[in-house]
Nucleic acid binder design. Structure first.
Lengths: 220, 220
DNA sequence: CAGGCTGACTTATCGGCGATAACCAAACTC
DNA sequence: GAGTTTGGTTATCGCCGATAAGTCAGCCTG
């Protein structure tokens, strides 16, 4: 680990006048690489990042106010594609229920492919202002997309007339729950992932469909 | 914060011959208190714990191999009651479906009451051996209780004949999902918690019940 | 009661961490 | 070529987890 730090101490050429932003990008790239290699964000140190790009630690603070902001900026890049990947998966069919299922599959797949960004975005305490802003910005947009998808299922008559925000929150909790569990405890003997996600989506679809034999006492 | 450390530097009386284990308990108590006060486990330092009990940092290593083990030992105490609390909530009714709902409510309530232990047990990467052991020991027992509860719903005819382990995993993912989201992002405008958990349990119950009108093509 | 032993700690220290203050040199402007 | 700005560096602070080695009281043996 500390050997990895010493490996790349060669000083990089100084950027020219207008190109100070290049270091910022290099820092993001290096941080992402180290994060994925180590598997844990807290194992990535400011000093290791600095060495990886061939620069001294204080240089990082010219581009990011603190370590948390750097880590979060890396995750934010993934987050931007997160919504679009899910939207694309959901748009691949006209059936709103099947669309919701494909969204769920895409969500879990994305989370498991980039577990560390997912962890930082969705599984750590929301303290920093940058994180909160991203969650209320792009995050709110992505959530609204989910609410819309649920609403389409209601409009198509596939779901009963439940509060779409409540239903969407339930769907999110379900897919986030399985993603989170698989990321946190990869060693346990889980069912096959795709089957599990399919099951979860089936439960949501079936559970949100119109009940035919019993009355529902929710008139709120 | 560092003021809090300096506040309690008074040296505690040295334990007598056979009473070395007393410090262990005091350390667990102090660690739990600091954890709950600060809200984040990583904000609790070995040095702060040592100061809180009036002892020097290396003394801690006489009772715990490293910091992670100490933190985890604190959480394990909660984990032992976790299963029993849920079992008690589930045993408060004879209706297996209602029992499952009460389990869900108890699960989420417990998680939100002790968010930091919940985080450490269920929302952090399973690295240390101690953590893995606890999860495969008491954790497997608690999960088996959930599987049994699902099986009772199946036996009672309330649920269709789905794989109980798969169904239990889905139920766990749903209640864990909402617990995890609420812990990670307390600032977002969530629906009312009890209503949300009720909704999630309703979805599970309804979704796992016998389908009456339509078949879904799952022949895998 | 001398001497050793052991259990319960302490003192001193190591290397790494995030972060800041102060400095400095290359590059562009005038 | 003097001045200013940009893009860094050097030096350092205080905290962190962890370890090595020392200390000292109390018990046990002889």
């Amino acid at each position: 680990m500390s050997a990895a730090r010493q490996a790349a101490v060669q000083s990089r050429p100084r950027a020219r006048r207008g190109e100070g932003e290049k270091l910022r990008d290099d820092l993001l790239d290096a941080t992402e690489r180290l994060m994925i290699e180590s598997g844990r964000a807290d194992a990535v140190s400011i000093r290791a990042i600095a060495d990886a790009v061939g620069v001294t630690p204080p240089s990082i603070y010219l581009h990011f106010p603190d370590k948390e902001s750097l880590i979060f900026a890396v995750c934010e890049r993934h987050f931007e594609t997160f919504d679009s990947v899910i939207e694309r998966a959901g748009a691949s069919t006209d059936d709103p229920v099947e669309s919701l299922r494909r969204r769920g599959q895409a969500y879990v797949r994305f989370g498991l492919e980039k577990p560390e960004p997912y962890r930082i975005l969705f599984m750590t305490r929301t303290d920093g202002a940058a994180r909160r802003d991203a969650l209320t910005g792009a995050g709110a947009r992505a959530f609204q997309h989910l609410v819309d998808a649920v609403q389409r299922c209601i409009d198509a008559g596939a779901f009963r007339r439940v509060d779409p925000v409540l239903a969407a929150t339930g769907v999110w909790a379900a897919v986030h729950g399985v993603t989170s569990l698989l990321i946190s405890m990869p060693g346990l003997s889980w069912p096959h992932v795709e089957m599990l996600v399919d099951h979860i989506c089936d439960i949501q679809n079936h559970g949100l469909s119109e009940p035919v034999h019993e009355n529902q006492g929710e008139t709120a």
